[in-house]
Computed example of a mutant assay.
Amino acid sequence: MTDQIIDADFGEEAEIAQAAKDAGKKGATFASVYGPKIYDGARMLLSVSAQKLGWDSRERAAAWPGLILGQVSHYAWQAEKQGLEGVPDRKTIDREMQKSDDFRRAYEAVSGVALNNSAREYDLTDEARAVAVNQCGSPKLSAHDRLDRARQVPAPLRAQAKELHDTGVCSYTESAIALGQKYANGERDRATRVSGKVRRRPERGGAR
């Protein structure tokens, strides 16, 4: 255990040192310094949660906005202290995180299943699952619970959630996916700007 704690401390120090080094690069921004960390962290959380809770592709899409924004919030405070360009302000982050929470609740209202209910964990024994249901309620929502969730969120988000549930895609999740790609490519985009080279974007269209 002691070795694990020491390793974790050194890992954190190394990450801080690397971030300071990246922040000193020409044209450094919040996206270039922390973007890959934001994207990788959100992807890891998505993968772990999806496996643990048995999320399907639509549920993963419903959870993604909150996960990527949570990582943005996590790294923003350090970037603010470094004076990096492009750091979202706290009010914007809080507003967008509230929107992602509302969207998740809207999706739960439409699908009738709670995303983060611990009774969904795949490796529970029958006894442990019964205890989880007793403590957290069933993952399958009652009509009352679904209505309660629906009432908590704005109508446009309910419409977006229904579109995701029915078709597997909606503009809100697409925007969150685009945000993730922006951060994933942050350092590459900085290097491109500094070099003065223009990257040709692939033509849109075709199978996704």
Rank of each mutant, 00 (worst) to 15 (best):
R120Y: 07
E121L: 03
Y122N: 13
D123F: 14
L124C: 10
L124T: 08
T125M: 09
D126V: 11
D126P: 05
E127L: 06
E127Y: 09
E127K: 12
E127W: 10
E127H: 10
R129P: 06
R129M: 10
A130M: 05
V131Y: 04
V133H: 04
V133A: 02
V133M: 09
Q135Y: 03
Q135H: 03
Q135R: 07
C136V: 02
P139D: 06
P139G: 10
P139V: 13
P139L: 09
K140P: 00
K140Q: 11
K140A: 05
S142K: 12
S142T: 15
S142W: 13
H144R: 15
H144Y: 14
D145V: 09
R146G: 03
R146H: 03
R146W: 04
R146V: 02
D148G: 13
D148T: 15
D148K: 15
A150H: 06
R151K: 11
Q152C: 04
Q152F: 01
V153A: 06
V153G: 02
V153C: 05
P154K: 11
P154D: 12
A155Q: 14
P156R: 10
P156E: 07
P156Q: 07
L157W: 02
L157S: 03
R158H: 03
R158Y: 03
R158N: 05
A159S: 11
A159V: 09
Q160N: 07
A161N: 03
A161C: 04
A161D: 01
A161I: 05
A161L: 03
K162G: 01
K162A: 04
E163D: 04
L164K: 00
L164H: 00
D166R: 01
D166L: 03
D166A: 03
T167A: 00
G168M: 01
G168A: 02
G168K: 01
G168T: 00
V169N: 00
S171Y: 00
S171L: 01
Y172L: 02
T173I: 05
T173Q: 04
T173N: 02
E174W: 01
E174K: 05
E174T: 04
A176K: 04
I177Y: 06
I177W: 10
I177S: 04
A178S: 12
A178L: 11
L179A: 10
L179Y: 07
L179G: 06
L179V: 08
G180P: 06
Q181N: 14
Q181V: 11
Q181S: 12
K182I: 13
K182A: 11
Y183M: 14
Y183S: 03
Y183C: 05
Y183W: 15
Y183V: 07
A184F: 15
A184Y: 15
N185C: 10
G186I: 08
G186K: 05
E187W: 12
E187G: 10
E187T: 12
R188G: 11
D189M: 13
D189S: 15
A191Y: 08
A191G: 08
R193A: 10
R193N: 09
S195D: 13
S195W: 06
